Amino acid sequence: SDFTIRIGDRTLHLKNVSEEILKILEELLRRGIDFEELRKIVEELIK
């Protein structure tokens, strides 16, 4: 499924993301992860 994360004025667009990855990202966001850290993790996950 497609997913968009907005943190402040920044946006991260994800396409064809599995439910498992979404759950991980949601947990990281709940813990207050930094946007740049989140972006790096996402890039690793979707390689």
Rank of each mutant, 00 (worst) to 15 (best):
L22H: 10
L45P: 03
N16W: 06
E19R: 10
R6H: 15
K40E: 10
D34T: 14
E43L: 13
I24F: 10
E19D: 12
I33F: 07
K23H: 12
F3W: 04
T4Q: 06
L38E: 01
K40S: 11
D2W: 03
E43K: 07
E19G: 13
D34N: 12
D9I: 03
I24A: 10
S1C: 05
E43H: 13
E19L: 11
I24Y: 13
S1P: 06
K15W: 06
K47D: 10
E20F: 14
K47V: 12
L14W: 03
D34F: 06
E37S: 14
R39C: 04
N16R: 06
L14K: 00
R6E: 09
K15P: 03
L25A: 08
L29W: 11
R10P: 00
D2E: 04
E20C: 03
E44N: 13
R6Y: 03
R30A: 10
L45D: 03
L45K: 06
L38P: 01
L28K: 06
D34L: 09
F35Q: 03
R10M: 13
R30S: 11
G8E: 03
I41W: 07
D2Y: 02
L45C: 03
K23L: 11
L38S: 01
L38R: 01
E36G: 05
D34M: 10
I7P: 00
V17N: 01
E36L: 06
I7V: 08
E20N: 09
I21Y: 07
E20T: 09
L28F: 13
G8M: 02
D9G: 12
V17D: 02
L38M: 11
N16Q: 04
L14Q: 00
I5D: 00
I21P: 02
R10L: 06
I5F: 04
I5K: 00
T4V: 13
N16C: 05
E36H: 08
I41C: 08
K40C: 09
E19M: 14
E26H: 15
L25S: 02
D34A: 12
L25W: 02
I41S: 07
T11E: 07
L45S: 06
I41P: 01
I46A: 11
L14S: 00
G8V: 01
V17G: 02
D34V: 10
L12E: 00
E27M: 15
S1Y: 15
K40I: 13
S18K: 06
G32V: 06
F3G: 01
E44V: 11
E26K: 15
K47F: 14
R31Y: 07
H13E: 06
L22D: 02
N16P: 01
I41V: 12
E37W: 05
E27W: 15
R31G: 06
E36Q: 10
H13Y: 15
I24E: 10
V42K: 01
I5G: 00
K23C: 06
V42W: 04
K47I: 12
I7D: 02
L14R: 00
I21C: 03
K40M: 13
R30Y: 11
D9F: 03
F3M: 09
D2V: 00
T11A: 04
K47G: 13
E27A: 14
H13A: 05
I24G: 06
I24W: 06
E43Y: 15
L29M: 12
L38I: 09
E43C: 07
D9W: 02
L45Y: 09
E44Y: 14
L22R: 14
D34Y: 05
S18C: 02
F35D: 03
R10H: 08
L22S: 09
G32Q: 12
L25K: 00
E37H: 10
F3S: 01
E26Q: 15
L28D: 03
D34W: 04
E44P: 07
I7E: 01
E19H: 11
L25F: 04
F3H: 04
E27R: 10
I33N: 07
L12A: 00
L28A: 07
S1H: 15
D2G: 03
E36C: 07
I21V: 14
R10I: 07
L28S: 07
K15T: 08
E20G: 09
G32F: 05
D9M: 05
R31V: 09
I33T: 11
E26V: 13
L12Q: 00
I7W: 08
I24C: 07
V17K: 01
L45T: 06
E26C: 12
E27S: 13
E27K: 08
I46R: 08
D2Q: 01
L29Q: 04
E26T: 15
R30T: 11
I41Q: 10
D2M: 00
E19Q: 13
V42Q: 02
E43T: 09
L29G: 03
V17Y: 01
L14P: 00
K40Q: 11
E36M: 10
E36T: 10
L25Q: 00
I46L: 14
K47A: 13
H13P: 01
R10G: 03
L29F: 07
H13K: 09
F35A: 04
F3E: 01
L12V: 03
L12T: 00
E44G: 10
F3Y: 08
K15R: 11
R39E: 13
I33H: 08
E27N: 13
N16M: 06
H13M: 10
F3P: 01
D34S: 13
E20D: 14
S18A: 03
L25G: 02
E43S: 10
I46H: 10
L25E: 00
I24K: 13
K15S: 07
L14F: 09
K15D: 02
I46M: 15
R10A: 07
I41M: 09
L14G: 00
S18E: 04
K40T: 13
I46P: 05
I5S: 00
D9E: 11
E43W: 15
K23G: 13
R6N: 10
E37I: 09
E37V: 11
D2F: 01
K47T: 14
I33C: 05
G32I: 05
H13I: 13
E26L: 15
E27H: 10
L12M: 10
G32T: 08
I21E: 15
E43G: 08
T4Y: 05
E27G: 09
L14Y: 04
R30V: 08
G32L: 04
S1E: 10
F3C: 06
E37Q: 12
I7M: 06
T11K: 03
G32W: 04
R30G: 05
I46N: 14
K15Y: 12
L22T: 12
I33V: 08
G32K: 09
F35K: 03
I33R: 07
L12R: 00
T11L: 06
E44K: 10
L14C: 01
E26D: 08
I33D: 06
K47L: 11
K40R: 15
E36K: 06
E44A: 11
E19W: 14
E43V: 09
T11F: 04
